[in-house]
Design a protein around this nucleic acid. Structure first.
Lengths: 248, 248
DNA sequence: CCGGATTTGTGCGTATGTATT
DNA sequence: GAATACATACGCACAAATCCG
């Protein structure tokens, strides 16, 4: 347990565990327990140094460690702040972006960047189980929660079945609603594959993040109730902002 | 379709899609279809330029794009090589590392880096549903397939129930087998959460990758048949080498 | 707009214990 | 056992950014 206000928090010296690790653990404990709320400022480094009875350097090592794992962020002149915990994003058979956000008390909105009719390349053809060269609708979208960009998606839909879906999506801001207008009242996830890589410059621009930031790449295929593949999507989530949760 | 040997592969000029994108698509198609095998060398840039009737610069743009998405890797003086496709790693209720690897025709081996008895910190306590400070066994392991490091794991197990499991694991090289020795013949996945971030220096060393490379971080909790939490694991997969597949 | 106070960022020097060679 | 390297920790000083009266 960590002293809330108290003058000193004892460390086990010379016991195998480095002082800075113990400090990092203590602060992490303060964060996950809620004693340090998300968005709040941690005590200044000097104050922490006093509390643990160590040099400021030692505190700084603990803080840089916590910053690397994304729990805090330091700003020169301002202080060190507790980062908001990433949004839990469920990966289930019936995950609907808008419903997920609604439950989290956030307002979801999909924004259509552009759409085009193209011939299926190898990847799209395989995902949708159509011939290479078959006509497909390609949509590029950004998904936001309360205005902050969470993911950038590239979606392929078979044509002519879903001709005009881009217009519907642009108006509704939700795939589920757009599908509904075209008579698809239900759909489910057929497959989900996950990888990760740094953001390329174009992606970084679209998501308003610095290039090179880590993206979680989720490739998924959706089918209608009859089992027909109706959608292949590659979503690139800002790894800092979401945590994917496997549902069963 | 791409000409296997043929002299020229036609591009659609002035049709909205840049030449280099079409070339990238064509080469990608060669790769995913298997016409260009993993590990093999692509034709030299000059040869590709002839085949598509473009300047070598245009081919290079396509190849850089493919390199960024991890499909190929160029080596000065040697050529451009098709990267091995990432290993599909299923995330299911009953995923067993050794079984997954066996099915993929690879030899799995877990290597114990070190183990220690510690007091549960906030994270471990929450995952195992024990009190903060309760005794737990912490194991650090590297999992390899055919010798190449796939993941680095930190595992927490409640004590005293699993006292000595580290010794068993070190000998067997498999958690499943070690559990079996302690009377746990079955277990299943309770929860799985996925995030991603760059590798820290220590992690990079353990996995023999350059620091900063992207890691897929999978946090999971396993329970025994009675539903009691027996293991909390944080696995860090080299994102280049695996693709997580959600099973249902 | 100034100027001081606060807070993080950076650099140097020193010392100690541990592990490797 | 000696030499070397590395991780850890402390102390001091100043720079840079921010805040506030």
């Amino acid at each position: 347990m960590t002293a809330a206000q108290g003058r000193l928090d004892p460390l086990v010296r010379g016991g195998g565990m480095a002082a800075w690790r113990q400090i990092a653990d203590a602060i992490e404990s303060d964060i996950v327990s809620g004693r340090l709320a998300a968005g709040s400022r941690t005590p200044p480094e000097m104050q922490l140094a006093e509390r643990f009875g160590v040099n400021r350097h030692t505190v700084r090592r603990a803080l840089t460690h916590l910053a690397q794992s994304g729990l805090v962020r330091s700003a020169q002149g301002k202080g060190t702040f507790v980062e908001p915990r990433p949004l839990a994003y469920p990966l289930g058979e019936k995950t609907r972006f808008s419903e997920v956000m609604a439950k989290a008390g956030k307002e979801a909105r999909g924004e259509l960047l552009f759409a085009q009719h193209i011939s299926a390349n190898a990847e799209a053809a395989e995902a949708l189980a159509v011939e290479i060269g078959a006509p497909v609708l390609e949509m590029h979208t950004v998904n936001r929660a309360d205005g902050v960009a969470l993911s950038l998606s590239r979606t392929w839909l078979p044509l002519p079945r879903f001709s005009g879906l881009d217009q519907l999506f642009a108006r509704k801001g939700s795939l589920t609603k757009a599908y509904s207008k075209l008579g698809v009242d239900d759909y489910r996830r057929l497959s989900t594959r996950i990888s990760a890589r740094p953001a390329e410059p174009e992606e970084a621009t679209a998501l308003a993040i610095p290039p090179g930031k880590t993206l979680l790449v989720v490739k998924s295929v959706n089918v209608d109730p009859a089992g027909v593949r109706i959608q292949a999507t590659q979503s690139r989530f800002v790894a800092d902002r979401v945590e994917l949760v496997v549902e069963r």
